[in-house]
Design a protein around this nucleic acid. Structure first.
Length: 226
DNA sequence: ACCCAGGGTCATA
DNA sequence: TATGACCATGGG
């Protein structure tokens, strides 16, 4: 039985069950940033196909993406969906990357102002910006996604009244030890846990969150979780 | 033929 | 502030 669990306790449960995730899955920080754009409302398996295309075309770096033909880029991005938007967004991200002196240049900037500049990039919203800050620049900031809200709302830990991005982020940052590794791992673990409960296997006998883990992708009537 | 995916932007009320 | 439409492909 888990009654009144804290976010840190959930973190311990997930870590014990799934182990360290070692996110973000990318060879370089720049590749990480590309993945952050490509995975917007898109399954990671589809993103991997697009990343594979870019790697094979030898354009998975700033110069490659910034100088290749737009039509070619759209062709490579097609499996990741939204390819017209994403080709444009990647291009703007390249410009930002170069203007800011790459990863090392960005690392020297205060997190808060760098976040504001990231949000100025068209196509970069709060989750994408924070993902880049946490996994690319390695600043301690917690990434909120739809899984985070859904999971913790259902656990009864995150009040339903708190749903706006910044409010949810604040909620967690008040309750989680502000360590780079914890922020990185918790977000990764939340996603891993959610993926483990896709509808192909909704039963989850050995779920680390016990009864709370029985959740479908949609809220259902009669769902007494929480 | 549905629903969903590691969001974000824009128009409208 | 808060919805809804739209973007697009691939898997269940």
């Amino acid at each position: 039985m888990i009654e009144r669990v804290t976010p840190m306790e959930v973190y311990q449960q997930l870590l014990g069950h799934y182990g360290e995730q070692g996110w973000w899955p990318a060879d370089t920080a720049f590749e990480m940033m590309v993945g952050a754009i490509l995975t917007q409302n898109t399954s990671w398996t589809n993103v991997e196909k697009a990343l594979h295309n870019l790697r094979e075309a030898e354009v998975l770096d700033v110069q490659g993406l910034a100088t290749c033909h737009k039509e070619s880029l759209e062709k490579w991005l097609r499996p990741a969906g939204f390819f017209r938007q994403k080709s444009q967004r990647l291009l703007e991200l390249c410009h930002f990357y170069l203007e800011r002196g790459g990863i090392e240049g960005m690392r020297r900037w205060p997190m808060k102002s760098l976040r504001a500049r990231l949000l100025d990039v068209h196509g970069v919203g709060p989750e994408t910006a924070d993902s880049i800050l946490l996994y690319g620049i390695e600043k301690p900031i917690f990434v909120v996604d739809s899984y985070t809200k859904r999971t913790f709302h259902r656990l009864g830990i995150l009040p339903e009244t708190i749903s706006e991005y910044d409010a949810v982020q604040h909620f967690f940052q008040q309750r989680i030890s502000s360590t780079l590794v914890v922020y990185k791992e918790l977000h990764a673990l939340i996603v891993t846990h959610a993926k483990a409960h896709c509808r192909s296997k909704p039963q989850c006998h050995d779920c680390p969150l016990l009864k709370h883990c029985v959740y479908g992708l949609k809220a259902q009537a009669g769902d007494d979780v929480g």
